[in-house]
Simulated scan of single mutants.
Amino acid sequence: MPLQSLPNDVLGFILLEVHKSSRQTLFSTLRTSKALHDSTKPLIYRDCVLDLSDSKQDETNDRITSWIETETEVLGYIRSLTVIGDGSYHYYGLTNREFEKIKDEFKYSSLIQHLSQLQDLAKFTFALEEPMSVCLLDSLDSSQPTIQLHIKNWTRKSISTPFRDPGELSLANSPLLHTVQASVYNGDGKIGLRRAAFMRIVALAPNLELYS
């Protein structure tokens, strides 16, 4: 019996299991026929990863623009969104305030617009090796108030970051934060200065389930 002739619920279950075991196989399935393409496409975009590295920034922004303007059905498929990057986003010679303003404008504006369009998002993972922007967190709080936020590679802006840094306090008090992961040790194995700030987030986060 051809795969595409199976009942939709059975076909959906099979494709979901394929998605869990091998996305490459799922991509191959998508190309075999229009019927399987239509059935597979929602699973392809179910768990979405966006690369915000300097070298990928323009490509990612174009991808987001395409979804919003011409492939709007994709927006309804996304359940989990992860942002990654190389952690090399720097503007030397600028003040901290100028840096934050430029970063917010050029690095996160398309992503923020994208987040406001997602109706069924359940999980957002921030995996960049830099602090999560206040404007990005505010956008999640306002446009996605029921999602779970997961932070990987948590870090501070610098070792001289004030203990009452607005970004850290916003993250610590966010009801969206469910997990946070960081390395708070120096290269010599000793506890670094970031530990106190990290443990404050752990202590204050109202819905935190796991930290490491």
Rank of each mutant, 00 (worst) to 15 (best):
P2I: 02
L3E: 01
L6F: 03
P7Y: 07
N8D: 15
D9Q: 04
I14V: 14
L15E: 12
L16G: 08
T29R: 04
T29W: 00
K34R: 11
L36G: 13
S39Y: 00
P42W: 00
P42I: 04
L43K: 08
C48W: 02
K56V: 13
Q57V: 10
E59A: 03
R63S: 14
I64M: 11
W67D: 15
I68D: 01
T70K: 02
T72I: 10
E73Q: 04
E73I: 06
E73H: 12
V74Y: 00
R79M: 09
S80A: 08
I84W: 01
D86N: 09
G87T: 13
G87W: 00
S88R: 15
S88G: 14
Y91T: 14
G93I: 01
L94W: 08
L94K: 07
E98L: 09
F99N: 08
F99E: 03
E100Q: 07
K101R: 11
K101E: 11
K103V: 14
D104E: 09
S109V: 01
I112C: 08
L115S: 09
L121E: 06
A122V: 03
T125C: 04
F126Q: 06
P131E: 05
D138C: 09
D138I: 11
S139E: 06
S139C: 06
L140M: 09
Q144Y: 06
T146L: 02
I147E: 00
I147H: 10
Q148K: 13
L149P: 14
R156C: 06
R156H: 02
T161Q: 00
F163Q: 13
R164P: 12
D165P: 15
P166E: 04
G167V: 05
G167P: 15
L169H: 07
L169S: 08
S170D: 00
A172H: 05
N173H: 05
N173Q: 09
V180T: 13
S183G: 14
S183R: 15
S183F: 03
V184T: 10
V184N: 08
G187N: 13
G187Y: 11
G189S: 13
K190Y: 15
K190E: 13
G192M: 10
L193Q: 14
A196E: 12
A196G: 04
M199K: 05
N207Q: 10
L210M: 01
Y211M: 03
